[in-house]
Simulated scan of single mutants.
Amino acid sequence: MEAKFVNCEGVQEELMDWLAGTLPPARRQTLEAHLAECPGCQQELAAVQRLWTTMGQLPVPEPSEQLRPTFYAMLADFQTAEQRRQRWSVARILERIRAWWQPAYGLRLAYSVALLVVGLVAGYGLKGRPDTTGMGAGQPVAAAEPAAAGPEAQPTQEVLALLSNPSAVQRLRAVSYAEEVAPTNERVVAALLSTLNQDPNVNVRLASLEVLAGLSHDPVVRQGLVRSLPRQDSPLVQSALADVMVRLQERRSVRPLRKLLQQDNLNEQVKDKIEQSIETLSGDQAPPPSTSSTNHETRTLT
């Protein structure tokens, strides 16, 4: 072992391990003996110690609030692309062709075509009937239709449709889209609150909670978050909700938080988190600065 420290280069290669305390005892004694007699290595050690101290004082960057929604959106895009690639692979196409040649599918196809033909014939016959409502001969009867939805309704309908999708990946994508639509849309806010309380996937509920926490300036959202506390059975969601209540300094959550403590088989770490949250919210500490955006409009659900 000592042969490695015959020259200064071998000693200097081990300085970081010596500072970290990972050198074996024999190698550490050999290195320390060399350092006691070598001024050059002593200077190198002083430089390495300064670097070590500076690196230890560097602040640890905190993740952005949008990290989870952005990750889920990227995951959804990746899985969608992967599904599309698999769907149009050669093997997949051949498998579908073989399936369509089975007798059962052939009968279904024939039945569907027959229904389509009957529908077209019936529609053509109804189109030629005279008007019997007094609107004038030769004019078709106009059925009452709802007013066409404006272009702003399309993102809302897309988000609501994706939130009811059986795929958790698609629901995560919907939550990511809802972050842009929710600040000006009461229906999307209500859907996010329902997702937080009822979605079977914990990741979808956590993503919904993060979006709703960014809308905490809305009194409806704050009240919905408080009411959501006793409905949660996931330790992850319970802990995350407790953190949000402390961040918002929402003292109305103290009572539902205490009810959570009465649940059977409550996770011990979650129990400690809730007790700390109750202590903070019950004290007289000044509320921390709000982290929510200030450019959203405040609205109230009726």
Rank of each mutant, 00 (worst) to 15 (best):
K4G: 08
F5W: 08
F5S: 07
V6Y: 11
L15E: 02
W18C: 08
A20G: 02
A20S: 10
T22S: 13
A26E: 15
Q29V: 11
L31S: 06
L31N: 04
H34G: 04
A36L: 07
E37Y: 00
A46S: 08
Q49M: 11
L51M: 11
L51Q: 14
T54W: 10
L58T: 09
L67D: 12
A73W: 00
A73F: 02
M74Y: 09
F78Q: 13
Q79R: 13
T80M: 11
Q86F: 06
R87S: 11
S89E: 02
E95I: 00
R96D: 05
R98P: 00
R98L: 07
Y105A: 10
V113C: 14
L120K: 04
V121D: 06
L126R: 08
G138L: 10
Q139V: 15
V141K: 10
A144L: 13
A149E: 15
G150E: 10
P155C: 10
Q157V: 13
E158Q: 15
A161C: 04
A161Q: 15
L162Q: 13
L162R: 12
N165R: 03
V169N: 02
V175S: 00
V181G: 07
A182I: 02
P183N: 07
E186H: 04
V188G: 04
V189R: 11
A190T: 11
V202L: 09
R205I: 03
A207V: 03
A207K: 00
V211G: 03
G214W: 00
L215W: 02
V226D: 03
S228K: 01
P230R: 00
R231G: 08
V237D: 01
V237N: 02
Q238L: 15
A240C: 04
M245K: 01
E250H: 06
R251W: 05
R252T: 13
S253K: 01
V254T: 11
L257V: 05
L261W: 03
L266D: 06
V270E: 03
D272P: 00
K273G: 09
I274P: 02
E275C: 06
Q276H: 12
L281F: 08
A286H: 05
A286K: 14
P287Y: 03
S293V: 11
T298A: 10
R299G: 07
T302P: 15
